[in-house]
Structures are given as structure tokens and as C-alpha cells.
Nucleic acid binder design. Sequence first.
DNA 1: TGAATAAATTAGACTAGACTAAAATATGGA
DNA 2: TCCATATTTTAGTCTAGTCTAATTTATTCA
Lengths: 218, 218
Amino acid sequence: MLTRSEEDHLKAVYALLLEGESALTKDIAQRLRTKASSVTDMLKKLADKGLLKHEPYYGVKLTAKGRGHALQLVRRHRLWETFLVQRLGFGWDEVHDVAEQLEHVADDKLTDRLDDYLGKPGFDPHGDPIPDRKGRIRERKTQRLSVCQAQDCVRIAAVSETTDGLLRLLDAKGLRIGTQLVVLEVHPFDGSMDVKPKNGAAFSLSKDVSHHLQVEPV
Amino acid sequence: MLTRSEEDHLKAVYALLLEGESALTKDIAQRLRTKASSVTDMLKKLADKGLLKHEPYYGVKLTAKGRGHALQLVRRHRLWETFLVQRLGFGWDEVHDVAEQLEHVADDKLTDRLDDYLGKPGFDPHGDPIPDRKGRIRERKTQRLSVCQAQDCVRIAAVSETTDGLLRLLDAKGLRIGTQLVVLEVHPFDGSMDVKPKNGAAFSLSKDVSHHLQVEPV
DNA sequence: TGAATAAATTAGACTAGACTAAAATATGGA
DNA sequence: TCCATATTTTAGTCTAGTCTAATTTATTCA
Ligand SMILES: [Mn+2]
Ligand SMILES: [Mn+2]
Ligand SMILES: [Mn+2]
Ligand SMILES: [Mn+2]
């Protein structure tokens, strides 16, 4: 049984390894709003439990066991987010903090029943994949909207930064998971691009925004 | 913001004061499976926060603030139990431990939306009243089935001990919240009674069981 | 190459929440 | 009344998880 803090550290490692190839002590600390020295202690503890390999001054790698635990945690987090949005009517910008708490209620029966109840969803409200009970994830080939070119037709698959501000901006522009877009033009000067949703008028997106939209070809 | 342990202590005090008129240190310890000395420390802390009055060697009384917090906790506990049974298909004997964890996710929006989603239920799966968002409880006049007499017609309103064994025994006999019964006969020798459900054959209940069934006249 | 800097670890301190053992207090029965 | 017992509190210890400050190690660049 892992404590809440152990779980949060494990998840931070998992997320950082997905984003880049290394999980640095300082980045874990920044993500958890704690200090590097605290992270060092916790990494030692997680290594003792066989959840990760920690070579002091080199990097952190998850073991199969550690990855399994992390995936279960991600599964619970994303199932709860889905529940909050689909069933309780929360906005996708309002669910993160609550899910951050609910994810720590570790009960396999609860998790599996919730999964059934929601219809075994493959993706959460932000478009992130939900691992199944065995930790398997549905893979997709997506790319950032910011690397697309004029004439490309794409569908928004996920938002890679779920800060409230970005999500609300997307709401304001009518952009959501599944929205189809055509790229009209890319402006080299500032990296902004003009896009046109399938049903709607064209508008412009800054590079800050397009960089955080994961899209798939349509 | 209260910690999980503070919340559990407060709830134990609240429950003990409801059952009897005093909440003794040793009883709190027993309920929380902890030691009297630990309880003393926590009572001091809760008193410092203005949630209860603790006169060493005398008793514990909740302040209005403390009662309010306890009621919110009870509200969350019972709403989650209701969710688990009504929506996720859990048995009424399976929900307590999970609800004991979920109750500590303190988010008013979550609680209120869950309440709405469940249709603002007045009672949980064990027949216990669910406080509303202001902490108000629907009062009923119930009595133990064990004090009823031959010919009494009653409806089961609540089960006052939610141990797995009792709940499964009731399941086996087809007794649930709302079941209507006629008391046929009471046997003074062992306190057992013969009862007949409205739709079904008569059978006998031991005093151990009838003592834990709260009923209302029908 | 070798400082300067960045990153990570170690050392030591603190708090919360538990425990055991000992002391203090209250209570019930002879 | 007064002692035996039950209950509660106090004193002191322990672990988990955090912190700051100091030290160690790795990296970068002049
Ligand atoms: Mn979390
Ligand atoms: Mn998400
Ligand atoms: Mn609890
Ligand atoms: Mn209940």
C-alpha cells in the first residue's frame, strides 16, 4: 500500500518520463510544489520498495512494478475526471484538483465499477488515454497543431496542458476534443495560424495555444 | 481545513453523542482502533480549533462549529454510500470502508453536485438520514423492532449497526429498508419474535437482530 | 583545462500523529 | 469513608514527510 505522497511522486516521475526522457529531481519537486531534498528522500523510499531505480546524480527509471502502480493511479485520476464532467456536469477546467484527491482512494472494485458505469471510456475530458484495468493504453499517433501546415485537415485529440486559462480560452473559441479544423495559413512572423472549424468561421490561434493542442489527421 | 484524522475523531465524537449522552475517550479510541492517549492529544487539538469543549476527566461537547463540520462529514459519507449502492451496484454491506475514504474529499461543489445527481436523497442505504447542505436532518420517530409487540405493523426504517454479518443476514431473509412487517408473536424466553413480511412467509428473528432494526409505525 | 554554475544529496531540525509506560484522577463497593 | 479499579492524562519515543543550510557532484563554457 502506497501513501498519498508516494503515489504523487510516482505519478510525477511517470508523467515526466512520458514528456521527456528523464525525470529530474528538481522537476519532480517543481511539479509537486516541494523541495528537491524532499524528493531525494522519497525517491530513496520508492527505490527501496522496488518501484523505481534511482542512481544518485544520474536518473530515475521506473520498474515494471512502479509503472504498473503509476498507470493505476493515472487510470483512477482520469476516470474520476470523466465522471465529474460527464455525470456531474463539471467544466473540464474544474476537475483537476478534485481528481487529484479522488485518485488516492485505492479500491479495485470501486475503480472497475466506475469504469463500467462510465462505459469503459478510452479517453478523459482532456483527450488523455485512460489505462484499462491491466494498465493498457490505447495508442494514437498525434502531433502538435503547431507543426501543421496550410491545408492540413485535423481533429483535436487532446490538450496537453490542462491549466484553467488555456481550457477557458478554448471554451471561448468553441474548440473541444473532437473538433475538426482546417489550417488556412501559418504566419512565420509569430507562429500564429489561421484555422477554420468544420462548422464555423475562421479565426486565429497563437503559437502558445497551437503548441498545446494535440491533433490527428482526419 | 481539517486533516483526515481530525475529521475521523470529530465524527466519532458526533456519533457517540448521538448514541448516548457522553463521548468517552476510551470509546472514541475503541471506535477508531487507536489508543486513549492518542485521543487525548487529538481532543486537545480539536478544542484549540474551537470545534469542541474538552474538560479533562469530564466530557466532550461539540461546539456549533464542530457539529457543523461533523454533519458535513456525515453528509459526504452517506451520499457516497448512496452513490455506491444506487449507481455502482455495490451491496449495502460493501460500502462502508470505501465511503470512509471518500468522505474526506472535501469540496463543496463536488458534494452538492453529487447530491443533485442522486436526487437529493433523504436517507442512505442503511436508512440513516443524510444532512442537507446546511446540515439539516430530516427527523423521524423510530423505535427498535425489539420493543414492538404482537400485532404491531411496522416498516423497517434503518439498520443501526452496519456490520457485514448483520446486513448479509437481512439480505438472506429478504429484509431491507422499507420492508413492511407484522409482528405475530414475541417469545419472552429469548426475546425472539415471529414476524411476517407484507409479501412473504413468516419467520423468526432473534433479539440480536430485532434490536438493531429501527422501525416506524405503518 | 578548470572555474563557475546548476543540480542533487546529506545533515539536521521540525510537526503531525501514532505508540508505551507511568502518573493522576474519578468512581463504586465494602 | 476509603480503597481498588477504571479511566484519563502526561511524559517520552518513534516514523513519515517536510523544510533550510551546507556539501557534494556534474556540467558548461571561457
Ligand atoms: Mn494526487
Ligand atoms: Mn485529464
Ligand atoms: Mn473516514
Ligand atoms: Mn450508512
